[in-house]
């Protein structure tokens, strides 16, 4: 079976280890994973800034790039939301591409959902007891709906002690270009988020969305917090002994 990873531009740029962790877990589940080289970004920046023309072109490129795969795995809630929900909407007036977009959207899976719903039995090589907390991205809460899957995956491993966040359904203030357009508001939002994270006393924060992770890790680092930050795939692949995001390698 041909299964592809849509790595997402942020993992590609900032966190390759998350991409490798995803592949490790998928291979462990018995899949052979392809990473099509022609992939770039899902087009959210254009879509969310009103540039529909560019968003459509990028969507068409992505649809072409992934057309021969049975599954496309996306290790980020917001990019998954883009491919699954927004791509078809982009082509309301273009039946041919609407079909293609819908067809792709049916083959796309957000990573934790795929791991949970499709891969079924899979065990995670986590050696020591770790206390963690988990940030649900807004897309994972409201677009892909992967909150429960994430919980089930984490709770399936006895070594993971999950401490839930207060205000867990509030946005971290990343919001793509929002965080640079309105940095003061974004700062206050991430501050609130980070305060809740620190209040859990957990050693590690995970999330399935790299945008949120960059934002939160960046703020934690600025505040000199010892909390380590990982993509959830890295946690499940047993790789939290490595450097967390923003930590020295």
């Amino acid at each position: 079976m041909r299964i592809a990873l849509f790595a997402t531009c942020l993992i590609d740029t900032f966190r390759p280890s998350a991409g490798f962790a995803v592949i490790k877990l998928l291979e462990q589940a018995g899949y052979q994973v392809d990473v099509p080289e022609l992939q770039t970004c899902c087009g959210q920046p254009a879509y969310n800034n009103g540039d529909l023309k560019s968003a459509r072109k990028i969507a068409q490129q992505t649809i072409e790039t992934f057309k021969q795969y049975e599954y496309v795995i996306i290790p980020s809630g917001s990019c998954a939301g883009m491919l699954i929900h927004h791509y078809p909407n982009l082509f309301e007036d273009n039946p041919e591409w609407k079909n293609k977009a819908t067809d792709l959207s049916r083959r796309c899976y957000e990573f934790t959902i795929f791991l949970h719903d499709v891969c079924k039995k899979i065990s995670f090589p986590i050696k020591n007891k770790i206390s963690i907390t988990c940030h649900d991205s807004c897309s994972s809460l409201r677009e892909t709906g992967s909150k429960q899957q994430t919980r089930n995956l984490i709770n399936s491993n006895k070594n993971l002690n999950l401490i839930e966040l207060n205000d867990s359904d509030t946005c971290c203030g990343f919001g793509g270009t929002f965080c640079v357009k309105y940095p003061e508001i974004s700062e206050q939002m991430v501050n609130d988020k980070v305060a809740n994270i620190m209040a859990t006393g957990a050693e590690i924060l995970v999330s399935a969305d790299l945008g949120c992770l960059l934002n939160i890790a960046g703020r934690l680092k600025r505040l000199k917090s010892p909390i380590k930050v990982f993509h959830i795939a890295e946690l499940l692949a047993g790789e939290t002994d490595k450097a967390g995001m923003g930590n020295e390698i």
């Binding site: 390759p16 357009k181 974004s186 960059l214 930050v229 995001m245």
Partner: peptide, 30 residues
Amino acid sequence: GSISQLPFSHAWTRSRDLPSPQGQSFISAW
């Protein structure tokens, strides 16, 4: 492991560090 100041990026770095990449991009590494 992170960057606290970057030209043209004050909006980001005024309140956060930027976690630095890991030497090469995922696609190249792969």
